[in-house]
Design a protein around this nucleic acid. Structure first.
Length: 756
DNA sequence: GGGGGCTATGGGGGG
DNA sequence: CATAGCCCCC
């Protein structure tokens, strides 16, 4: 066989690719060709007659998975598609889709996203009569997530004195009870949250009904794990289930870099690497230290910085690249000036070195920092794209339409039902929903089943009945229509499109565009045959679509115009590289983040994050800081980041001692205290002497065509009156508001009838 | 039904 | 400061 692709590898890479039997650990420094090693290793496995469908490759991000798949296929062709390559979550979601009935979940289970989880926890807090000021949904959610990630069941949670003590200390002793309720409610809804995709997979393998574990142990003869330093206890536990058993070939290869571990805050643990050495004896380790990405200044700066971390696997990256430019230090007085100077530098780099926008990135510690850079890039007419922030799939209108699809696919999906039972409006108010919720809880049935009861007994109104009939008709259509046609049908039939068309504001137009964009992407899904992939997207069903959507993020969206400057957080930049990188906001309390300053472990994680940031640069690296910065509405003064001083001065274009002393000693970090809240000016919105004589007329006397006076809007004419009794609504055209008509509920409105 | 005002909150974030 | 969620009021 001709294995040309092996020729370009250095000796360590070659060994890491071709050592395909037994446990292997690859420690891969930044820019050391990690992805090449991973993909060539898989190609080499396939060339060594390992059936591609017996190879399991786990990554953290869709981006990494996608890149890996593409590169495997480019080396081995078609059969590369049969490799089970994907994120932990997507691979295990796929397995659960096949096996979930064995552990009490329907095969069409819903995946709850973070918002669903949070909403559900919030309802549970309220239902349980707990104080929402004390029980914060986010912290409860984090506790539950932590518990699942450490394989602690609700019962174990309740029985564990340490956990109980901690919850008591945080004044939230009922957290364990909420955890138990949450789990029960997810079960009732036939729903799994993101953690469940891993937790339930572990449960499945651990309980092992019908020897399902052996099935997958046999299925996957070779397992690869990317970014192993970011795995948590649960992920490693699943990996062990698959690879560590009597008679296992133990063909497992983990790739990672302890220096780039930046997710400890969410449970990733370096212990896993240490445990791995212990769990898999006979382990062969390869260290990739040659860097093919960056100039010596950049590589050395990275080495300088990381030596300040005590606990790490010994490793020094090096490069053969030519010297290149020193690292630029940019100091600014204000955050706004920082924005301007970065934009200036970008223009200069573009002119001097003919960089395209896509070769440039601005990396920051917090997403909130993006705004100022956007402002200046827009001013300079440079195209850019901000990653992170509110993703497309988190927008209200998108979630609304998706909720209809979700409920159609799984009627027990409580969170979807809650979202749309009265959108668009069909006269199902809070009172009805509360009745339904109480009923559902009393009989331990889903909201949908409870809704059926109320719809059948409802008198007159018919909103609920219409809702039930509509959803049922969607389910029927699901049998005959493809996903796209179904989605279009639903968007129209529910009145969502009509509702948005009625809103002529820019906001409304954007929303309508988003609905259109969602429909376009559904069309893409339903018509593009290349997307079929047994491991992650096995068919074109509604369920398959929803699963795919739930596990995708904003980061994965590709743009039609690829020539933009990239703005993203350092976390998001992991795995990427750019010719020019600006790492901004290098100030104490920002980078490193102020919440991390308490412990050495936290500062070390911030330092690894900085290490990740600077090693994204190929040729041009700029580091900037501002003396003062607006944060939470106040000007704050911070000293330059300690990390700047950890870089040997000879790598910098100006000595740090020259740049930094101006800012040392003089200013203390803290709040300026000068800025006070703006005075609140109350101005009358309507001036008219007639108001002095205002006297409201009884609402029953108000009729169509009358001239009326309103305290805020002034004079107007009643165009129309609809509804009856208490819910009469008047449509009134006021002189002051131009063409825009107001709809006012007569029950509340204070209107005076005027002589015409 | 819907707008306005008040209040709480604000770290990094994949799936 | 910016935003989201909530309550109140018309």
């Amino acid at each position: 066989m001709t294995l040309d692709y092996l020729n370009g590898l250095n000796p360590v890479q070659y060994a890491a690719v071709t050592t395909i039997e037994g446990p292997v650990m690859v420690i891969a420094g930044p820019g050391s060709g990690k992805t090449r090693v991973l993909t060539f290793r898989i190609a080499y496995l396939i060339d060594s007659k390992i059936p591609p469908y017996k190879i399991l490759a786990l990554t953290f991000t869709n981006k990494a998975a996608k890149e890996m798949k593409e590169r495997i296929s480019s080396v081995v062709g078609e059969k590369g598609n049969q490799v089970w390559a994907g994120t932990f979550h997507s691979i295990f979601a796929r397995i659960l889709r096949i096996e979930s009935e064995k552990i009490g979940f329907p095969s069409n289970f819903t995946i709850y996203d973070s918002d669903d989880t949070k909403n559900l926890i919030n309802s549970l807090i309220k239902e349980s009569g707990l104080d929402t000021n004390v029980y914060n949904a986010n912290s409860v959610k984090n506790r539950i997530s932590q518990a699942k990630s450490n394989l602690i069941t609700p019962k174990a949670y309740a029985d564990n004195p340490d956990i109980q003590a901690k919850d008591r200390m945080n004044a939230m002793p009922q957290t364990g009870m909420l955890y138990a309720k949450y789990v029960a409610r997810c079960q009732r809804a036939g729903a799994m949250d993101f953690d469940d995709l891993l937790y339930q997979t572990f449960r499945l393998f651990h309980q092992n009904p019908d020897n399902v574990l052996e099935k997958y142990q046999q299925k996957f003869s070779h397992v690869l794990v990317d970014e192993f330093q970011d795995t948590n206890f649960l992920q490693y536990a699943i990996i062990k289930k698959l690879c560590m058993y009597e008679g296992s070939p133990r063909n497992i290869c983990i790739v990672g870099d302890d220096a780039q571990s930046i997710y400890a805050f969410r449970g990733a643990t370096i212990e896993n690497i240490l445990d791995f050495e212990r769990d898999f004896n006979g382990l062969q380790t390869f260290k990739l230290e040659q860097n093919y990405r960056s100039t010596p200044h950049i590589v050395q700066a990275a080495n300088d910085v990381i030596t300040y971390n005590k606990r790490q696997i010994k490793k020094e990256i090096w490069t053969e690249k030519p010297k290149g430019e020193p690292i630029r230090l940019i100091k600014a007085i204000t955050d706004s000036e920082e924005g301007k100077r970065i934009a200036d530098s970008i223009l200069e780099l573009k002119h001097r070195y003919h960089l395209s926008n896509s070769e440039i990135a601005i990396l920051y510690r917090t997403n909130a920092q993006s705004r100022i850079f956007e402002e200046f890039l827009r001013k300079y007419n440079l195209s850019y794209r901000v990653f992170g922030g509110l993703s497309f799939y988190q927008r209200k209108e998108v979630k609304d339409l998706l909720a209809y699809l979700r409920l159609t696919a799984n009627k027990r999906d409580d969170e979807a039902l809650r979202r749309i039972i009265n959108y668009p409006r069909r006269g199902v108010g809070n009172t009805s929903l509360e009745k339904i919720t109480t009923w559902a809880n009393a009989y331990d049935i889903s909201l949908w089943e409870a809704t059926l009861v109320f719809a059948a007994n409802s008198k007159g109104k018919g909103g609920l009945e219409a809702f039930v009939t509509m959803i049922n008709s969607f389910s029927a259509k699901m049998q005959t229509l493809n996903v796209f046609d179904l989605a279009v049908y639903i968007a129209n039939k529910t009145g969502i499109v009509q509702d948005l068309k009625g809103d002529n504001t820019q906001d409304g137009l954007n929303r309508l565009e988003n609905i259109q964009a969602l429909l376009d992407s559904i069309k893409e899904f339903s018509e593009n045959d290349e997307l079929i992939d047994e491991a992650t997207m096995p068919d074109k069903s509604l369920q398959s679509y929803l699963q795919n959507i739930a596990l995708i993020s904003d980061m994965d969206q590709t743009d039609k115009n690829p020539d933009y400057i990239t703005l993203m957080s350092v976390h998001a930049a992991k795995g990427l590289e750019f010719r020019a990188v600006f790492v901004v906001g290098l100030e104490e309390n920002l980078f490193p983040s102020f919440q991390s300053s308490e412990t050495i472990e936290n500062i070390d994680e911030e330092r690894r994050l900085f290490y990740v940031a600077i090693t994204r640069a190929q040729e041009f690296l700029s580091l900037s800081f501002a003396k003062s910065r607006y944060r939470y509405g106040q000007i704050r003064y911070n000293e330059p980041s300690r990390f700047l001083q950890e870089i040997d001065a000879q790598r910098l274009d100006m000595p740090a001692v020259e740049a930094i002393p101006n800012f040392m000693g003089q200013q203390r970090s803290g709040v300026s205290g000068l800025l006070n809240k703006k005075p609140i000016i109350v101005a009358p919105s309507f001036k008219n002497t007639e108001i002095l004589n205002f006297k409201a007329s009884p609402s029953s006397q108000i009729m169509q065509g009358m001239n009326v006076l309103h305290l805020r809007f002034g004079k107007g004419t009643v165009v129309n009156i609809d509804g009856n009794n208490d819910s009469k609504v008047a449509t009134i055209k006021f002189d002051a508001t131009g063409d825009e008509e107001k709809r006012i509920m007569l029950k509340f409105a204070k209107l005076q009838i005027l002589e015409s």
